[in-house]
Design a protein around this nucleic acid. Structure first.
Length: 938
RNA sequence: GGGCGGUUAGCUCAGCUGGUCAGAGCGCCUCGCUUACACCGAGGAGGUCACUGGUUCGAACCCAGUACCGCCCACCA
């Protein structure tokens, strides 16, 4: 299948014929939320919300529904493309959640936010999957042949493609589907050709014979990154090579040099034996010849200081064609490098009986034969590090091959400069070190792959061996050197490493190499979010290629996510069978809950364990929010019409609790802004969660309930309170929308809107930061604390929860109006009635009776006595215990505070504000201790 | 052989540039009148922040070292 970037974006879901989508049963109109069940059911909400977004064309920065401010810079995230043949796992879900969070936040802030979706052809990974499928059908890649195989692959990827796209949508990703790209689409193909052509002309791509990592299982070369070093126990064999008698030219039966090897079969490719130049044992032998067994080749004994005299026998056999060290040694000494392996890992071209044997079979045979002829000097178990293919697990064999390489030196230099100068920032910062280390020690990048599925290398060779690289889709018309016509040229059969096209992703997706408006607007992109495990594979390559080809850093920030692990901390993998399908979780708890769960309580770059508990927590939160919204909508005073346009609360009638709630929202917004600026998304969810649950619901709604049902208040007061609830809820919905887009959109749809608001929250505006109301926060805060203390006293005295307790209370005169305004709220929440106000602490003291419970809130100077009554004998004792406990605690704190202040250095050297704070604290505690003491003695 | 990260309540984890930071969720214990929510509400218990030194008026937070756990990089046969 061939993807095209559509000329015109549609407002509909991606025009892929394979994608089917049924909408949910409920179409959200305004104010229908109350018709929905008490328990939030995401299944009824999420699909239709997504449909609304699509219909409104709000995802595209230039879509019909966009409200972006063109004066602001664009904000762009090009998504790391998942494999076209794969399906989404939790890691993907997390990435999409984080990326979409950033995108939605930027969109709410008015930036032209582009979230560009895509798919990767995943050349070797996809071949692996398809090969297994056709093997099950009794087919094979070889039998099909290149063309038919590729056809099959195209059909296969067309069939798998909708799966992952559908999953992305279920997650709620606000992708601009009209800009969907694929690393194998025509445009990417062009970008690959042009990129390679430019690199070639700049001398940064070259073809040479070099030792490459060959995977016999995959039958292709792989890059250094795809080779995993695994420690394993092998065998170190010692083999005697017979020296050549200079007189006779024949091997001496007794004079030998013993070499050590872990791969005896490579004897067949030996062209020298090396010793250290200072090694006295072998000094006399340097320059003489030794006979290589089986192949009967006489090779020189050479001196080379790479040899460690302490290892093995101090003499090393040199196999330049199959060992990296030996290859270097061979080059230094001008040694021949005969190859002894075929593509499939069998021995070849040695002219011995081992030809055709598998490398391990040959190893056993060689050892046996050496033993038979008495030249095996010994063998011992040996701890070593083997290079294995990341994909197949096969032991990788170094082989000499003529292939294409990218000269990384100059590219890496520029990539390092990008981070060193701060033009690109890597988060978390610690990864800059590994980045530095890798790029500083980087080796040239082998980009040739002997695979079929991928971009064919646009290099042609003429019969004379001339090389022609062309960026033209149809290939060159003639040899660049000798003008032979195209018909006589042969294209390189190899394809590119899949990461080559991935490396162009941030700009090829925007139209590069063409000069497109998208490239001008959205490049360089904003944030590259991806897992830290592919920082080298991908991020470094994008940086290198981006700088070289576009002259600019492809992104200003690299945000590296940690890995998702199972609840036991194990990495999720298909082979372990602990991979969880995110769709199941979405079905169960909703995409919002999944997104929240994946972000909450995490820190950038740190792995997280993920299990059902987190999901449940997030679902509960969604449910809490849902029900809070249901309450607010249902509590609308009758004096406000159902379809009223949004009004701000009337300042003349708002109560202290309203001001408190509003001020807390300001505080939360400020904190969220700071967290967002620091990419601390776990902190963002924590802040909003706490604000909604512990402030808005626990106190805001509870206090509002009292006011909304207070017959003594006029309608203006009730209206002001209700509008406050709406306003603050609205603020929290905006703050939460980037994390939980569906539920916030759904609730928002049911709330009255401002005249300036758009129809949809997704394109509304991020909350501005207003003024804190310090007095309201302090005074209402004190009363909230008072309620808590009364509840505490009630519980520790084992008083029945249902009883209303007569309570005396003293509040400082300054707080009088606030207290009176909240009196009924305090009564209800503390279940204290009647609540009698005493005018002085002394009056309170005088009015109490033995056994009364006393609670003191130091911060606001509030004090209360709860009248227990005679019915509760043991209450007095229990209360005494509590008071003693409180007193001991307060005394402890007081002692600590005094000790601190007694320290002359502290007073002298600590900042004035800290000292003042400590003094105030001391005074408060002293007062509290006094009162508790008085209480206990009285 | 280099480099990085982690070690904080029973479990999973927050804790930004040192000064109420000893927190959250789950779990646990007690209780539940109250129609937004039992996917809930109220109260509570639980930690010498791995260890040892140091810097500082003050350290979970900075420095040095130690011990475990994990990850990445590395061409010694």
């Amino acid at each position: 299948m061939t993807d095209r970037t559509p000329e015109r974006r549609t407002s509909r879901w991606y025009h892929d014929p394979f994608v089917r989508w049924t909408s949910g049963p409920i179409c959200f109109q305004r104010r229908t939320i109350m018709d929905l069940p008490k328990a939030y059911t995401p299944r009824d909400v999420e699909p239709s919300i997504y449909e609304r977004w699509l219909a409104a064309d709000v995802f595209a920065p230039d879509g019909a529904g966009s409200t972006a401010d063109p004066a602001l810079p664009a904000f762009t995230i090009i998504q790391p493309p998942p494999n076209v043949t794969g399906s989404l796992h939790l890691g993907h879900a997390q990435r999409t959640a984080v990326e979409d969070l950033m995108i939605r936040h930027a969109r709410l802030r008015g930036h032209r936010a582009l979230f560009l979706p895509g798919l990767d052809h995943a050349s070797i990974a996809a071949q692996f999957v398809l090969d297994r499928i056709i093997a099950a059908e009794g087919e094979s890649r070889e039998a099909l042949g290149r063309e038919r195989y590729l056809e099959r692959m195209r059909a296969f990827s067309d069939s798998t493609r909708p799966v992952i796209l559908d999953q992305q949508r279920r997650l709620g990703g606000s992708f601009d589907w009209g800009r969907l790209r694929y690393t194998m689409d025509d445009h990417s193909a062009k970008a690959v050709r042009v990129a390679f052509d430019r690199l070639y002309r700049a001398g940064l791509a070259y073809r040479t014979e070099a030792l490459v990592n060959w995977c016999p299982g995959c039958q292709t070369s792989v890059s250094d990154l795809e080779v995993l070093s695994t420690p394993e126990t092998g065998t170190l064999w010692s083999v005697r090579y017979h020296l050549i008698d200079p007189a006779t030219g024949a091997p001496d039966p007794t004079e030998t040099i013993t070499v050590a090897t872990t791969r005896p079969e490579t004897i067949l490719g030996d062209t020298a034996v090396a010793v250290h130049s200072d090694d006295a044992r072998y000094a006399a032998l340097i320059g003489r010849l030794a006979r290589v067994p089986f192949v009967d080749r006489d090779v020189p004994i050479i001196a080379d200081d790479v040899v460690d005299p302490a290892f093995g026998t101090g003499a090393v056999k040199i196999t330049p064609a199959h060992d990296h060290d030996d290859h270097q040694t061979g080059l230094r000494h001008g040694l021949a490098a005969p190859s002894i392996l075929a593509d499939g890992g069998t021995i070849a071209d040695t002219g011995t009986r081992y030809d055709g044997m598998d490398r391990y079979e040959a190893r056993r045979a060689v050892v046996a034969d050496l033993e038979a002829r008495g030249d095996l000097a010994g063998s011992a178990p040996h701890e070593m590090v083997l290079g294995r293919c990341q994909r197949s697990g096969d032991v990788v064999e170094p082989r000499l091959k003529t292939q294409w390489f990218i000269r990384t030196g100059p590219l890496a230099e520029r990539a390092l400069e990008a981070t060193r100068s701060g033009r690109t920032r890597i988060l978390p910062e610690r990864f800059e070190k590994t980045w530095e280390h890798w790029l500083t020690n980087i080796r040239d990048w082998n980009v040739s792959r002997q695979l079929w599925w991928g971009h064919r290398i646009p290099a042609w060779y003429c019969p004379d061996g001339h090389v022609t690289v062309s960026s033209v889709a149809t290939g060159p018309v003639a040899c660049e050197v000798c003008d032979r016509p195209a018909a006589e040229l042969r294209q390189d059969p190899d394809i590119f490493d899949t990461w080559f096209s991935s490396g162009l992703w941030p700009f090829s997706t925007l139209g590069w190499p063409d000069d497109t408006p998208d490239l001008a607007t959205h490049y360089p992109t904003s944030v590259m979010e991806t897992g830290y495990d592919i920082i080298f594979f991908w991020v470094a390559r994008m940086m290198m290629l981006g700088l070289e080809l576009t002259g600019e850093e492809p992104f200003h920030t690299v945000y590296l996510s940690g890995l998702i692990r199972d609840p036991q901390g194990a990495k999720m993998s298909k082979t372990k069978g602990n991979v969880v399908d995110p769709l199941g979780m979405i079905d169960e708890a909703g995409a919002d809950a999944l997104r929240f769960a994946l972000i909450h309580g995490t820190t950038t770059g740190n792995d997280q364990r993920f299990g059902p508990a987190k999901l449940e927590h997030a679902r509960n939160f969604a449910n809490k929010l849902w029900n809070a919204a249901r309450y607010v909508l249902g509590a609308r005073p009758l004096t406000i019409p159902a379809d009223a346009e949004r009004r701000l609360p009337d300042e003349r009638h708002v109560g202290p609790a309203d001001r408190w709630l509003r001020s807390r929202a300001v505080a939360t917004t400020t904190a969220v802004d700071a967290a967002m600026a620091g990419y601390a998304f776990g902190e963002v969810t924590r802040l909003v969660y706490d604000a909604i649950w512990n402030e808005y619901c626990d106190w805001g709604l509870e206090l509002a309930k009292v006011r909304l049902t207070d017959e003594q208040l006029g309608p203006e007061a009730r209206e002001a309170t209700w509008w406050t609830l709406v306003e603050v809820l609205d603020t929290y919905l905006r703050l939460l929308h980037p994390v939980m887009p569906f539920i916030t959109e759904a609730i928002w749809a049911a709330l009255p809107h401002r005249a300036t608001d758009p129809e949809l929250l997704i394109v509304a505006r991020w909350p501005g930061v207003g003024e804190r109301d310090e007095a309201a926060e302090r005074e209402v805060g004190a009363l909230i604390e008072l309620v808590g203390e009364i509840r505490n006293a009630r519980a520790s005295a084992r008083l029945p929860a249902a009883d209303w307790l007569e309570t005396l209370v003293y509040v400082p005169p300054a707080m009088g109006p606030t207290f009176e305004a909240l009196r009924r709220g305090v009564e209800r929440l503390a279940r204290a009635r009647p609540l009698l106000r005493e005018l002085t602490p002394e009056a309170l003291e005088a009015a109490t009776m033995p056994g009364d419970l006393t609670v003191i809130v130091t911060g606001g100077g509030v004090e209360a006595a709860v009248r227990v009554g005679a019915a509760h004998d043991q209450a007095a004792d229990l209360e005494r215990e509590r008071l003693e406990h409180d007193l001991a605690e307060a005394q402890g704190w007081l002692a600590a505070a005094r000790e601190r202040l007694a320290n002359a250095s502290f007073v002298a050297r600590a900042p004035a504000a800290v000292v003042a704070g400590a003094r105030a604290r001391e005074a408060e505690l002293a007062e509290q201790v006094d009162r508790l003491r008085a209480r206990l003695s009285g």
